[in-house]
Structures are given as structure tokens and as C-alpha cells.
Design a protein around this nucleic acid. Structure first.
Lengths: 156, 156
DNA sequence: CCCAAAATCACCCTAAAGTATGAGGCTTTT
DNA sequence: AAAAGCCTCATACTTTAGGGTGATTTTGGG
């Protein structure tokens, strides 16, 4: 439960110092037979000392209040650099992984034939994918699909 | 106001340990038939009191150190919102005003026929514009032209 | 294991995009 | 005035894109 003794070291040291002080006073009392009227002096000294100790303790123990200042800093970010896919939109459109892949390649300006070559499938397959893609996205052309895809953060 | 008691636990523990210490001294006093010099008790009480006073003083007077924590909050700025045309790139490519206009409409996903209708010219004119556009931009397809146009900040 | 969705491919057809070439009118620059 | 550049349009042609239909295989979840 108490992991770090270090936190209580000050308290322990303080207690020890108090004990030593009291013993010292006791010793002085016995040694020099302190007169009763000098009690006020001791009391004052003790008061002063322990006030200082209290202050020191409080300052040590009091965690500095951290005032978090949130400063809005306008950061221009190329949206390609830190692109995060909007999964909500993706799910909403019910696009399959392959369809999204085709869309991404379309956005790069690739032709259907180039996409087919890159994905190692036939041209007809890409045509089928693109058709389904346009149907799901409710667009008529690939340029519209790309435009909408970027707006919905489906592609960078 | 004081949210975390945990900060003061050490202080409380210190008070308790002090009390125990005093009791111990009292017990020693009785044990060894120490004369009823109540000086220690007074000293302890004063010590306790003024320690508390010191703590209280310190907490009252101590201005909380304001640790300004600057958190850079990234504000995403849609590039469409504050689009500025990169005239250098435009001049470098030697695009005419009409060609840029056609490119912008292409970027919106419009077909050549739609662009022709919108600009009140014939389909063939748009084809000519687009051909020259692709030639100047050194691209083969409209999707590539749009991609490059956005990259070069020719269009939002 | 079975079913549904996804992925794959083919064929045919139409629409759109893109290329090539030529040409007339218009403005700006030299 | 001539040259150059831009905008316009046309015709003819090729390529690419896209729609419709049908089919097979793969795959993930109940």
C-alpha cells in the first residue's frame, strides 16, 4: 500500500528532531536547572522554530497547482500526412475492402486497366467493383466517387 | 476546493505521531518517576500549535505556482475553407483561364457535357480544352489532372 | 457444415472520354 | 501589320468507362 517510504522521510525526520529537541531541553533543564521564568523564552523559541518547520513542511508537501492552459495553435496539416479513415462513413456506405481499395487507386488517377494490373485481377473484375462502388456511393462517375470519397475521409 | 485529501495525509500522520511521541514521553515520565515538570507537554503543545500555524500560514500565503502547461491543440483547417491559388504553379504550367475553369469543374466530378452546358460552349470545345489541359499538365486522364491540380493548389 | 456476402470473371452493349487535325475569330504582343 | 496565343467549333476516330446480366469460386460467421 505504502510504496515509497521517501514521502514519509520528512515526517520521520521531523519526529526525530522533535524528540531530540525535547531530550535536549530535558537535558538542559537537568544540567543547568533552568529557572521557571525562562519558560517563555523556550516557548517562544519553540514556537518560532516550529512555525518555520510548519511553513517548510507545508511548502514541501503542497503540490504546486498546475494550471493547464490550453493554447490553440493553428497547425496546417496536409491531410494526406495524417489521414485517418472515417470508419463510420465507410460502414454507412457498406463498402467492401476491395471496393475501397479500387476507390483509392481511382483517386490516384489510375485507369481501370492499371488498377486491374496492380491488383492482379482482370479488367472486368475492376469494372464490376467500380460499378458496385458507384451504386453504393450513389455517383455516376469515378471523378465524383473520388470527390465524395475524399469528402467522407474514405481516402486521403 | 480541496480536492485531494491525500496531499495532507502526511501532515495528519505527523500530528498523530507527535501525539504518540508526547504520550510516550508522558509514559516515560511516569515510568521513571519523573517529576511532574509539565514543561515538555507545554513545549509539545506549543510545537504542535505553531506547526499548525506555520502550515496554515504557508498554505494561506503561498501563491500557487502556476505551471503553465502549453498544450498545442491541433486545429485542422479544411483546405477548401481558405484556399489560395498557387499562381506560381499556374504560371509554370501556362494554363489559360478557361483551362483552369474546366479543370475546376472536372474536379467537381462533372462530365464534359455538363461542363459544356455550364460554360455555354460545345462539347467539342471542352474536349479541346481538356486535351490541351492534359498535355500541359502532362497527364493522361482527368482524374490525374484533378489530383495534380489539387496537389499544386490550382483548385481547392 | 451451410449460408450469405464478397470476390472473381466473361460477354455485350452504350456512353463518355480522349486524340488528331483543321479552321475561323478574337485579343495581345512584337 | 504580322505573329502568337486563346477560345471556339467541327469531324473522325480510338480508347476507356460504365451498365446489365449471368456465373463461379472464396471466404467468414452462425
Amino acid at each position: 500500500m505504502i510504496k515509497n517510504i521517501g514521502n514519509y522521510r520528512q515526517t520521520i525526520l521531523y519526529g526525530i528532531s522533535l524528540a531530540i529537541l525535547l531530550l535536549l531541553l530535558r537535558w538542559l533543564e537537568l544540567r543547568y536547572v533552568i529557572l521557571a521564568h525562562s519558560f517563555e523564552i523556550y516557548a517562544g523559541a519553540i514556537a518560532l522554530l516550529f512555525t518555520a518547520l510548519g511553513i517548510w513542511l507545508a511548502l514541501k508537501l503542497n503540490n504546486p497547482k498546475v494550471l493547464t492552459k490550453v493554447i490553440e495553435k493553428e497547425v496546417f496539416i496536409t491531410q494526406t500526412a495524417n489521414f485517418v479513415l472515417n470508419e463510420q462513413n465507410l460502414i454507412a456506405l457498406k463498402l467492401s475492402a476491395r471496393e475501397l481499395e479500387v476507390l483509392a487507386l481511382m483517386a490516384l488517377g489510375k485507369s481501370n486497366q492499371e488498377i486491374a494490373d496492380q491488383l492482379f485481377v482482370s479488367l472486368n473484375t475492376i469494372k464490376t467493383h467500380s460499378s458496385r462502388l458507384f451504386e453504393k456511393m450513389d455517383v455516376k462517375r469515378r471523378t465524383q466517387a473520388v470527390e465524395l470519397g475524399k469528402k467522407l475521409s474514405l481516402i486521403p
